[in-house]
Design a protein around this nucleic acid. Sequence first.
DNA 1: GAGTGGTCTAGACCACCGC
DNA 2: CGGTGGTCTAGACCACTCT
Lengths: 253, 253
Amino acid sequence: MGTTQLESVPEPKYWHLKTVLSEALDSEFSVGEILPNERDLAARFGVARATLRQALEQLELEGRLQRRRGVGTTVAPPRVGVAVGAEQHVWPGAAGDTWQPADSTLEVPPASVAAALETAADEPVHLVRRSRTTHGQPVAAELLYVPSSSVPDLSAIDAPSGTARARAVLRELHRLRLESQESAVELGSARADDAKQLDRLPGAPVLVVTTRFFAEGRTAALSVATYRADTCRLTFGDSGGVEIHENPARQAS
Amino acid sequence: MGTTQLESVPEPKYWHLKTVLSEALDSEFSVGEILPNERDLAARFGVARATLRQALEQLELEGRLQRRRGVGTTVAPPRVGVAVGAEQHVWPGAAGDTWQPADSTLEVPPASVAAALETAADEPVHLVRRSRTTHGQPVAAELLYVPSSSVPDLSAIDAPSGTARARAVLRELHRLRLESQESAVELGSARADDAKQLDRLPGAPVLVVTTRFFAEGRTAALSVATYRADTCRLTFGDSGGVEIHENPARQAS
DNA sequence: GAGTGGTCTAGACCACCGC
DNA sequence: CGGTGGTCTAGACCACTCT
């Protein structure tokens, strides 16, 4: 009689909890609604708070929940689609793009960036900082590295930093003919400064989009953009506008 | 003398730990090397094991470490770049793609998929399962949904499932002229079945790539591909081959 | 069986927000 | 100030892999 049930895999509590909560979110809560606090929820499900938190963390990772210290846990709206790799290649800052230039300075880039730009490891390059917002919420922070060789006539601007300088660098960059671009997406965790810009805690999961811009047969600029992974769905291709409303990461098992 | 140090932000222990470990990985360890076990490491740094694990989790999320139950923690190789949105649009399964068809059945898709395909909610569609490997490691699992209307002449195949059926569906699909495609990338967590295919635990972070294939003025197929977020860097654009070797998510703050 | 990472507990204190 | 989520502890047991 020992063979009636194999039950080979006892599902972890937090996994089961996540499923239960997920279904409750679908049926009993609406977007923006606040959940009971963690201590109450843990008590209600008869688990330790740490276990409950493990389930909440997963749901937040999937974009179902939003948690804010001192405030509470709320039901998150569906992820917003942000166009990243438009079919038509365009320089950063060209008419119609959704980035806001913030600042620009001359910096010695990290070694990995210098390698991609094919500049010497200690050679300073222009660093343009930009941010991107959708529906009033910050969704991305970008570092755009532009070697001096890509903007040779920048000397007219002698401001060491500032928004005007950022615009000037972009304007000069546009004089080059953009031949192609290529992007890569990977998972990362927010650095302290990015986290502040994105209104998240350091270490929050982010999607890092690295884009190389090619002109005149070489890498003319390199962009490292950090998107909030919890709220964003990055769209590539012909049109970023068409939406698949339900979160595919939430499909039933 | 109280004002000498503001020290307004006491950095969390796990965050500091992560930084220390990260530097140690750069300077004192090489790829594939195994780290001391968690209990020893925790003792060495004078923290609880849970705190140490929080740091390790972040490093694993960033692709720096690989942990396997019963085995240990090893230094991960750099993320492998996998081409996802090639410039040239191609049907799934066309010559030269890197996917391995595994199976195909007729299934009623999730509501979100039915909506994207513009089929009735209860109408079964062809579901092709494929997997993708690089350097011998599984990196992605895909569900490809193909409505019957896209492959009207499939009746020659009457096998209810199997690899041969998967190939037949793809072959019929190729008779349509692919007009365009669009993709979206978002963060998700591995469902139980995907996790098994990807050799990870359920809930592991994954990059979900949803691609719509357009032909004859409508959505002719929908692909939902689940990539391991720890080991993959998804490349879009002209050439997936050019590499930026250092992980940009790891740049110093 | 020994050793690893994965799960779970029941507490404690801290940082932040809004009242 | 009270309430929230974020961090941290010191244990325990479980699931898995390797020998």
